[in-house]
Write a protein that binds this DNA or RNA. Structure first.
Lengths: 107, 107
DNA sequence: CATTTCCGTAAGCCATAGCTTACCGTAAGC
DNA sequence: GCTTACGGTAAGCTATGGCTTACGGAAATG
């Protein structure tokens, strides 16, 4: 149920913005905060949540912390989504066949 | 930004349980509520949220409403995730090459 | 050392999300 | 027509999540 944490983490708009900023490459905290409508501590808190969800990783670099995307969490989410998609589609097909078989006429 | 609504909708655990119950096929509201630790009105509210996010569809069937999974919302989410995945991976590769090029020695 | 930059954490505030109970409309069954 | 199943909505409560300001610690800089 790792995907659950990822979903919760990505549900918040500003947290998602933080995350999406990392798409272009690793960033320091203050760099990430620049341009966002919230304070730097807020960004720190978001990064903590993202990290606990396995969506980002961080490394120390002198006095600053550089955050980057961690494929782990994103992968788990993708896996869940794909499975779900397949199963849902299968059930959908099955439903159609069932309707086709025993009379669909009796509205 | 349709995927945003889907993320918010799927972030809540019980709402996700409602949604996952539909994987096995269309269900009525009271049937969905049976077995869940919340009241039927709560399930109704969750279904409303899921519907607004494009994740489920509903049709009337006599006095009951049958809900089913709507591929729309799930598809949008999948699309976003896949794009994100590709871009993140590309940036990751780029980062490695950059490190390899100009000296990585000066830790 | 003193100072400055960078960042995480604590405390506290406020809006909102999720739940319950209560109520009302609508379609079927007798 | 009554009654009964079904389900959407309103009102209200409470917990929690995200934000801010304030603080403290650690590494670079002089």
């Amino acid at each position: 149920m790792a995907y659950g944490n990822a979903l919760v983490a990505l549900a918040d708009p500003t947290r998602r913005r933080v995350f999406e900023r990392l798409k272009s490459g690793p960033q320091s905290v203050s760099r990430l905060a620049r341009g966002l409508p919230v304070s730097r501590p807020a960004v720190s808190q978001h990064l903590k949540a993202l990290k606990e969800a396995g969506l980002v990783a961080d490394r120390a670099e002198g006095t600053r912390r550089v955050y980057s995307i961690d494929p782990e969490g994103l992968g788990a989410l993708r896996k869940w989504l794909d499975q779900f998609w397949d199963q849902a589609l299968a059930a959908f097909q099955e439903e159609i066949e069932r309707e086709a078989k025993h009379g669909k006429d009796r509205k």
